[in-house]
């Protein structure tokens, strides 16, 4: 073995830069106790974790699938989940819903500044919630001119998909943070 091959072997270059696509042709997802199991090209995984590679810009494509007990190692990528049958898609969606929780704010009831904290009371697509963040901090992320994410004191996240869709009164309430 030449030293170069040695190093290749060591770094697993092929494996770490190769992109393996998961599709109905090579992968079978099966539900198991609220989670998903995967069989792909002869490998079996009891439980896999499904991550979004581009959670903001491509939430429904490019899903990265990893073993739950070794998340640093990727099994493969699903570029187009819609290639799979309906049951599998539902299973993947369920796994995504388990992993990601970012309520979308539909209506702002109030926004109050007190003691250096800003507290927003809002209706979201997941129900009503009230959260706080430190004033003047990096709690507010603008993904675009109209898309905003708040990160509260605990690290929970809340999204306003389109600020301009809020009423003028609601916009005024949160104007200060944007």
């Amino acid at each position: 073995m030449t030293p170069l091959e040695n190093v290749n072997d060591l770094l697993n270059v092929e494996q770490s830069i190769g992109v393996r696509r998961l599709s109905p042709r090579n992968a079978v997802f099966t539900p198991s106790g609220g989670f998903a199991a995967l069989d792909v090209e002869g490998e079996h995984y009891d439980r896999v974790v499904v991550c979004r590679a581009f959670p903001f810009t491509e939430p429904d494509r490019w899903l990265s699938v990893r073993p739950a007990d070794d998340v640093k190692h990727e099994i493969g990528l699903i570029e187009r989940p819609d290639e799979f049958d309906e049951a599998t898609r539902a299973l993947l969606d369920e796994q995504l819903a388990l992993r990601y929780f970012t309520p979308k704010i539909l209506r702002i009831r109030s926004a109050v500044d007190k003691h250096g904290f800003s507290t927003i009371d809002a209706d979201t697509d997941r129900g009503r919630c009230k959260f706080s963040f430190r004033g003047g901090s990096d709690a507010v992320t603008r993904l675009s001119e109209t898309r905003v994410i708040f990160t509260d004191l605990d690290g929970d996240r809340y999204e306003i998909p389109d600020v301009t869709k809020l009423t003028r009164r609601e916009q005024k309430k949160i104007d200060v943070y944007l």
Binding site: S32, G33, G34, F35, D46, R47, P55, L98, R99, Y100, F101, T102, D154, G155, D156, R157
Partner: peptide, 24 residues
Amino acid sequence: YVGCGALVADTGEGKRLLCRFSLR
């Protein structure tokens, strides 16, 4: 996970999702 978490029990035969909660 991202913005949430879950309590998972290992029953020996498999995993079971007990409950979900936000990061709070």
